[in-house]
């Protein structure tokens, strides 16, 4: 925990959109859909976002999670030149960050609390939804340090590859279950938000 350091917050708000094609043109305007249960067809991701072994140069020790927000990919380091790559949804403009944290807790079917502005729009929503299918946090959650950020599942598979969240990283449920089963509490998580010119 002592090594936890959270660097720049809200970088995306000040970065200039170059490089990754998944910038502004891929922005998806979507609200949370509590209770929505996606079909298996909806959960079938485009090929590039499905979990796959890739070439990945890194000095991080095996087992480290590296998130490249700009790429919309999460890497689970296997050795110094290989990783398993997962497609993710990341924080929207103004909610991206970079830093080094550790997984401090793992939770199956995490609970969800809609943000206050969502309650204001949809006053009928429960202020607390116990975990289960249809929960916006999906099937699993990895809590990062003592922050509000998590790596979690989603009931909105169409958001993978997009910048839609409040700073969390989301995977489709099948993928987050796979990742959850591969990493223990204490796993190092590196979040990179590439500065772009």
């Amino acid at each position: 925990m002592k090594i936890v350091r959270l660097a720049a917050i809200a970088l995306a708000a000040t970065t200039i959109g170059l490089g990754v094609a998944s910038g502004a043109e891929k922005e998806l305007q979507i609200q949370d859909q509590p209770g929505y249960i996606p079909t298996p067809e909806e959960e079938r991701l485009p090929a590039e976002y499905r979990p796959q072994p890739v070439y990945f140069r890194s000095n991080e020790p095996p087992g480290t999670i590296v998130v490249h927000s700009a790429e919309r990919f999460l890497y689970l380091v296997q050795d110094n030149s290989h990783a398993i790559r997962y497609g993710v949804g990341v924080g929207r403009d103004g909610f991206q960050w970079q830093g080094l944290l550790k997984v401090t807790r793992k939770q199956e079917w995490p609970d969800w609390r809609p943000p206050a502005e969502m309650i204001q729009r949809q006053p009928y929503l429960p202020r607390f939804m116990a975990g289960g299918p249809g929960n916006p946090l999906g099937a699993r959650a990895l809590y990062l340090g003592d922050t509000v950020y998590r790596i979690h599942g989603t009931n909105q598979p169409q958001t993978i590859g997009h910048a839609v969240s409040s700073g969390c990283f989301r995977l489709v449920n099948r993928d987050v279950i796979d990742l959850f089963n591969r990493v223990p509490v204490g796993t190092k998580v590196v979040v990179r938000q590439q500065a772009k010119l």
Binding site: P126, R127, A130, G134
Partner: peptide, 22 residues
């Protein structure tokens, strides 16, 4: 009213507690 919800009966008690918080 404090409003919360659950899917599984096993979550009922803690959901009631969360409804009070709500």
């Amino acid at each position: 009213w404090g409003l919360a919800s659950f899917q599984n009966a096993a979550d009922r008690e803690r959901t009631v507690a969360q409804a009070k918080v709500a």
